[in-house]
Structures are given as C-alpha cells and as structure tokens.
C-alpha cells in the first residue's frame, strides 16, 4: 500500500501543524495524488485532526484526490491566454485526448486540467505538460502534438 513507503517523506517535516501544507505537497509529489488513507497518516504526523487535513487539502486547487496520468496537460486559463483563444485550445485537447477537463485517459497516460496562469503570458496561448511549457499554440498545433502521442 502507498502509505507504507511514506516514512522518509514524512520525516523530512517537523511534527507541527504549520508543516501541513508542505507535507501534503510532498506526499502528492511522491504519490501523484492524495489517496484517502494518507490523510490520516498526514494528520497524525502534523498533530492535527483529520478533518483539518481534509479541509486544507480541499481548499487549495493544487491538491488532488484522484490519480493523474503520466502526462499532466494543463491549459492556461489566464487573461492573456483567454484573449489569445485558450478555450479553443482546451476544446481541441478535449477532442484529441477524448477526455474532458478534469479527467484522465483510461490508460493513465494523459490528464487534462486548467491552470490559472503559467507566467508565459507574452507567448499566449500556452499549455504545460508536466512542467514543460509550450507557447503560441493554435488548435492545429495541439492537435498535431497530441495526435502523434496518442498513436
């Protein structure tokens, strides 16, 4: 089970409530998401009630409760990308990957999400795949990029 190998991850943090967010970040980093049973482990380590762990984890958009694909495709929905036609990029990706925003392909290869802004607004519209950014996109470009990958 996932929890068994969390020891080294947890022990890097002080057992105090203010470690909670960095703890969750670190656990998610190593597991890819926050499985339900991990929340209790984190709660014990940070010495806070489990309800607080869930309250905090559900407040921040960074935290996920479901596994994600190996390639995390994030479409920027920031202002510059919106003006540059981000919705067409998102829709094209939904069609090409055959999943909707927030979903993961069955083979666990791709997840599709949106992000507030990647910080590359001068080259809008942008997406990031794991942490790598592609810029100045068009629906055609993303179609090509991901159609190849889907084969």
């Amino acid at each position: 089970m996932a929890t068994t190998n969390l020891g080294p991850v947890l022990s890097a943090f002080e057992r105090r409530p203010e470690s909670l967010i960095p703890l969750l970040q670190s656990v998610q980093e190593s597991l890819g998401y926050l499985p339900p049973d991990v929340l209790g482990t984190v709660a014990r380590h940070a010495r806070v009630p489990r309800s607080r762990v869930y309250g905090v984890a559900s407040f921040y958009s960074q935290f996920r409760f479901n596994p994600v694909g190996r390639h995390r495709v994030a479409v920027c929905r920031g202002t510059a990308c919106h003006v540059g036609g981000a919705r067409f990029i998102l829709e094209q990706l939904e069609r090409t990957l055959e999943i909707l925003e927030g979903q993961t392909t069955e083979d666990m290869e791709y997840s599709l999400e949106t992000v507030a802004c990647i910080g590359c607004c001068g080259l809008a519209p942008c997406i990031s795949v794991n942490d790598e950014v592609s810029a100045k996109l068009t629906p055609m470009k993303v179609r090509k990029q991901f159609k190849k990958a889907r084969k």
């Binding site: 105090r16 967010i21 407040f59 921040y60 958009s61 960074q62 507030a116």
Partner: peptide, 24 residues
C-alpha cells in the same frame, strides 16, 4: 514556502493563514 494554487492567498492575511498551515 510554496503556494498551493489559491488566488486569495495573495491577500496578506490569507497568505499568513496559509503559511501557518490553514485554509487561506
């Protein structure tokens, strides 16, 4: 400290709450 994806945490009192390990 890394933020966790909440715009409101740019607001100073929310940012402090977040640093303390709470909902922002």
């Amino acid at each position: 400290k890394e933020g966790a994806g909440a715009f409101v945490c740019g607001e100073e009192t929310a940012l402090i709450a977040s640093l303390e390990g709470h909902r922002g």
